[in-house]
Amino acid sequence: MTDVVVEATRDAYGRALVDLGSRMPEIVVLDADLSGSTRTQKFAELYPERFFNAGIAEQNLMNMAAGLALAGKVPFASTFAVFATGRAWEQIRNTIAYPNLPVRIVATHAGLTVGEDGASHQALEDIALMRVVPNMTVLVPADGVEAEAAIGLAAKADGPVYVRLGRSKVPTITDGNLEIGRGSTLANGDDVAIIACGIMVSAALEASERLRERGVSCRVINMPSIKPLDEDLVIRAAEECGAVVTAEEHSVIGGLGGAVAETLSSSRPVPVVRIGVDDTFGQSGDPQGLLEYYGLMPSDLESACDRAMGMKG
């Protein structure tokens, strides 16, 4: 590929907020002292009367957002994923999701590619934490254009939405036509299917190429809508390919892999190999080095596909 466009999903968020903010005066943005990092700062500069810094107080951040939603505003609440979903989980459960309030929780710095800040700041559990909460929609965009679409959908949502964004630049590989509850097939194939989200979608495409060179026909599905999951697309992949690999920059417990395994075990049991971080914490390092260390490279997906195909009945 030449002239690949690269953009961090958090940068797309900052861009989308400014754009939406000019058209939707009811949008308010809240942050917890990380507006430079989460990219809400530009909105804050342009619309200071609609930006509220909670300071380093994530619990209050989430429930102020709930109060603003109750009073008719369209709140976006941002901080790092580990604090948004961890520090304030119960605030999200009881005061946002239980009353089904349309609070848009847009969290950045998810996953290993936070990099050098290390394990304390690398959310590997956030998808699981948000997916288990009733009423919650969970979106994991693969690139900047999909992140922009996710923010646009979130602005119009009538219930709570969690959008998971990353720190590092990623190649733009989708057309940005995101729909809640829908995945998309980026490469056709019928020997094995990789279902991926976030930064792992481009790794899945690369793995698919490598497999194709070996004569293996590998389907690649981008699944930005973790909840609701595109169950039809997942089941069809299982029926037509007979083996599935999931790929996410998240724990192998409770995330996209968990969602796919739950769906297939009750609808169309086939071998499912989950690629992610194996029930452990991260550590400091450069993003690329971390992805290699924790086994999230295209080559890891390639061997996972071999394992999955080897388990076919």
Binding site: V28, E49, R50, F52, Q59, N60, M62, N63, M64, A65, A66, G67, L68, A69, L70, A71, G72, K73, P75, E90, Q91, N94, T95, Y98, P99
Partner: peptide, 25 residues
């Protein structure tokens, strides 16, 4: 009932968010 409550410590934050909106408007 204006807000679902019961988990202690959260109600004042909700009230603050509402009051922020009230002042904006």
């Amino acid at each position: 009932v204006e807000a679902s409550t019961g988990s202690l410590g959260q109600g004042l934050s909700i009230a603050v968010g509402m009051a922020l909106a009230g002042k904006m408007d």
